[in-house]
Structures are given as C-alpha cells and as structure tokens.
Amino acid sequence: MRMMMPPLLVCCEGKTEQKYFQILQRIYRLPGARISIVGEKGQHMALIERTVEEREQFCAKQGFRPDEVECWAVCDDDNMPWSYKELLEYAKKNNVHLAFSRPQFEAYLLQHFEQSGESHQKVLYEKLGAYKTGFDGAGYDESTKGDLEWLREAIDQKPKIVDTAIINSNQRKKRSGKVFLTVQALVEWMRKYRR
C-alpha cells in the first residue's frame, strides 16, 4: 500500500533549485495541489523566515494546520555569516528542514553524473557544462544555470541518475569533515512518496 504524502512546502534560495525540485515533482508524479515549490525566497536565516511566512499562506489557502505541513528550505553556503550548525538550529527552532549544499547547489547537481567533492565554482561549471553539452550543445555558466531543461531530459532518459545523486551525496557526507551536502535528504523524502 502506498503511503499518503503529507502537504509539502519547499522554499528555495533561487530559481535553479526551484526548477530542479519541480522536475522531481513531475518525474515522481507527486500530487500538485498539496505541494508548493517556490524560488527566490532569500538566503540562510532570511530564507527560513520566508519559509515560515510561506507556510502560513500555504496553510490559509489549503486549509492545513502548520504542524501538518512538511517544510524544507533549500540553500547553499554562499559565504554565509553563520555556521551550518547555527543555521540548522534556527531551522529546527522554526520547524523547517534544511536541504543544504556546500559551496553551492551545482555541487549537488554534479553528483548525478559523478561523485565529486569539487568546491571551485569554475570547475563545477566546467564539469556540468561537459554533461550539458551532450544535451543542448551549450555550456553551463551564470547566464544558463537557471535553464535545467537539459537535466530534465537527462533524468527522463535515465531516471536512475537521481538515485546516483543520492548515493554519491551520501558517500561525500561520510567522507567530509564538515557538512558538504544534505539536499539528498529532501530528494529521498520526495522519492518515498512517488507513484
């Protein structure tokens, strides 16, 4: 028997993260009326505060209590002025789960294709560009990173790459002294409710 998915609210730091989770929502055929995935909601502590505000609006529209809604804030390091531990504690205090990438979300996207601990933006973009070129002939940079049509196509062709990203991310988590990626926890949560 399939588990019933609780209402889900995902607040993302930017468009790239939002588009990625919208791809998963479609791929996993998750019910849209009870899911809200929103982007460009701020960074770090401000993102968590915006998530709390979004939860209030979501509950008012959908008729749920705040404690019934699974809330996630998706952000990355971006030279944040707080430690990961402080950010995580703030999220927990506000009943929000944290899906975090260090140094940035591209570090997680790369895990779909290879296990990597890469932390330099230029190299991350070059590596993703090499994979992206196979789909649309273009590279990956600041101006194109919000276009994830190529990744949607890659996942459509080979859905197992999402499982690969989870496995690779979990391996990095074991090897890294500090938090590298926790985004895969949200992906696993969504995958649990797929049709």
Score class of each variant (00 low, 15 high):
Met1Phe: 03
Met1Arg: 07
Arg2His: 06
Arg2Ala: 07
Met4Ser: 13
Met4Glu: 12
Pro6Thr: 05
Pro7Tyr: 02
Pro7Ser: 01
Leu9Ser: 03
Glu13Asp: 09
Lys15Phe: 10
Lys15Met: 08
Thr16Glu: 03
Glu17Ile: 11
Gln22Val: 06
Gln22Leu: 14
Ile23Ala: 09
Leu24Arg: 08
Arg26Val: 12
Tyr28Pro: 09
Tyr28Cys: 13
Arg29Asn: 15
Leu30Thr: 10
Leu30Pro: 09
Pro31His: 13
Pro31Gly: 09
Pro31Arg: 15
Ile35Arg: 04
Ile37Arg: 07
Gly39Cys: 02
Gly42His: 07
His44Cys: 07
Met45His: 11
Ile48Ala: 02
Ile48Asp: 05
Glu49Tyr: 04
Arg50Asp: 09
Thr51Gly: 03
Thr51Phe: 02
Glu53Met: 13
Glu53Trp: 02
Phe58Tyr: 06
Lys61Val: 15
Gly63Tyr: 01
Val69Glu: 01
Trp72Arg: 06
Ala73Thr: 01
Cys75Ile: 11
Asp76Glu: 06
Asp76Leu: 02
Asp77Trp: 09
Met80Tyr: 10
Pro81Asn: 08
Ser83Tyr: 06
Tyr84Phe: 15
Glu86Cys: 02
Leu87Pro: 07
Leu88Asp: 11
Glu89Ile: 07
Tyr90Val: 00
Ala91Arg: 01
Lys92Ile: 06
Lys93Val: 08
Lys93Asp: 12
Phe100Ser: 02
Ser101Phe: 07
Gln104Glu: 14
Gln104Leu: 07
Phe105Trp: 03
Tyr108Gly: 09
Leu109Phe: 03
Glu114Tyr: 11
Ser116Asn: 10
Ser119Tyr: 11
Lys122Val: 14
Val123Gly: 04
Leu124Met: 11
Glu126Tyr: 15
Leu128Tyr: 04
Tyr131Ile: 15
Lys132Gly: 10
Gly134Cys: 14
Phe135Cys: 07
Ala138Thr: 14
Asp141Tyr: 07
Ser143Trp: 12
Lys145Cys: 09
Lys145Val: 08
Gly146Ser: 14
Gly146Ala: 13
Leu148Cys: 04
Leu148Tyr: 03
Leu148Phe: 04
Trp150Asn: 05
Glu153Gln: 15
Asp156Arg: 15
Lys158Thr: 14
Lys158His: 10
Pro159His: 04
Lys160Val: 13
Thr164Asp: 11
Ala165Thr: 04
Ile167Ala: 14
Asn168Val: 01
Asn170Cys: 06
Lys173Pro: 00
Ser176Asn: 12
Ser176Met: 05
Ser176Val: 05
Gly177Asn: 04
Gly177Glu: 11
Lys178Arg: 13
Val179Phe: 00
Val179Ile: 12
Phe180Leu: 02
Leu181Gly: 01
Thr182Ile: 00
Val183Ser: 04
Gln184Lys: 00
Gln184Thr: 00
Gln184Asn: 10
Ala185His: 02
Val187Asp: 06
Val187Leu: 03
Trp189Asp: 02
Tyr193Val: 03
